[in-house]
């Protein structure tokens, strides 16, 4: 890295779409067509889940957002700028990508240096770096673990550490790949709280998940992918409503239990337990 890179201010980027993907095609060298003409626009500050069966192209799409993969065809714009013209190190200041497996990134012997790695690569130094690290660790509930060896933490806490290490980079766009894998209920609640705090700060959050309950309860928009294409795009109530079930089934996805109960009992679209309870209460007067 040649020098400190400016991190775009979160508030300043609301005017343009955070992500604009046009006709994106990605063919891997061995010939797999992982993305087959994806068109997607995500507004600044949006909280979006991408769901789909394994191999539907979700992770490939995520890797295009920070330049780890380059389009075979089509284009990816990040905050109004064509990603093709930016190096990964530069895109890292705009898009923070949390990988699924934390053990694929942890290298430091203490938690704090691990979290400091990303922001220091972006040019943060001294007190500002310290503050970013402290805030990120506190946000994921690891505030008192700064001096601990990351491998002394359990898997779910290492996962939170990986999220903290990207959180500290203060990128306007955050992409989370399977953030709830390996998390118990408390961990899932923690991840949901983190995403909600991102949203309050005006950051754009894009998460890949197979946890339909988590998706329904956390995200305002759900994008469903199948065979490298977007096949559904709407609110959780729309995507998990009964008419959309055949499409979900074609991607080997099942709507959350609350949505199924709501549909089976004639209560309409109830993607979350809260919506289901509300619908029952409304029906019973």
């Amino acid at each position: 890295m040649s020098g400190p890179q400016a991190v775009p201010a979160v508030q300043a980027v609301q005017a343009v779409p955070a992500v604009r993907v046009r006709g994106l095609v990605h063919v891997y060298p061995e010939g797999t067509r992982a993305l087959d003409g994806v068109d997607l626009e995500i507004a600044g500050g949006a909280v979006v889940a991408i769901i789909g069966q394994n191999g539907s192209g979700k992770s490939t799409l995520a890797r295009h957002l920070n330049g780890l993969l380059r389009p075979t065809e089509g284009s990816v714009e990040i905050l109004g700028e064509d990603a093709a013209h930016l190096r990964v190190a530069a895109l890292a200041a705009r898009v923070g990508l949390v990988f699924q497996d934390p053990d694929r990134q942890i290298f430091a012997r203490k938690v704090r240096p691990e979290v400091a790695f990303g922001p220091s690569n972006l040019g943060l130094r001294g007190a500002a770096l310290d503050r970013a690290v402290t805030e990120a660790l506190e946000a994921v509930g690891l505030g008192d673990q700064g001096g601990v060896n990351p491998y002394d933490l359990g898997y779910s806490r290492r996962k939170l550490l990986a999220i903290a290490s990207v959180l500290a980079m203060r990128t306007p766009i955050v992409v989370l790949d399977e953030p709830t894998t390996g998390q118990d209920l408390r961990g899932v609640a923690r991840v949901r709280a983190i995403i909600e705090s991102f949203a309050r700060e005006g950051r754009t959050v894009i998460a890949i998940s197979h946890d339909m309950r988590f998706v329904a309860e956390t995200f305002r928009r759900v994008v469903v992918m199948r065979a490298g294409r977007v096949v559904l795009d709407g609110t959780p109530a729309e995507v998990f409503s009964e008419p959309a079930w055949p499409v979900l089934a074609s991607t080997y996805l099942e709507p959350p239990l609350a949505a199924r109960v709501g549909a089976r009992t004639g209560l309409g679209a109830t993607p979350t337990e809260a919506a289901l309870v509300e619908a029952v209460a409304a029906r019973d007067g």
Partner: peptide, 29 residues
């Protein structure tokens, strides 16, 4: 692992010094 570290701003496309700095974050994981 390289992809994960590049996502955290590790510059593997720069000069020799930048690449050398990236050795530890790649090899340890």
């Amino acid at each position: 692992i390289q992809a994960a570290q590049r996502s955290r701003g590790l510059d593997t496309e720069g000069g020799l010094l930048a690449r050398a700095r990236g050795f530890l974050p790649l090899i340890v994981p």
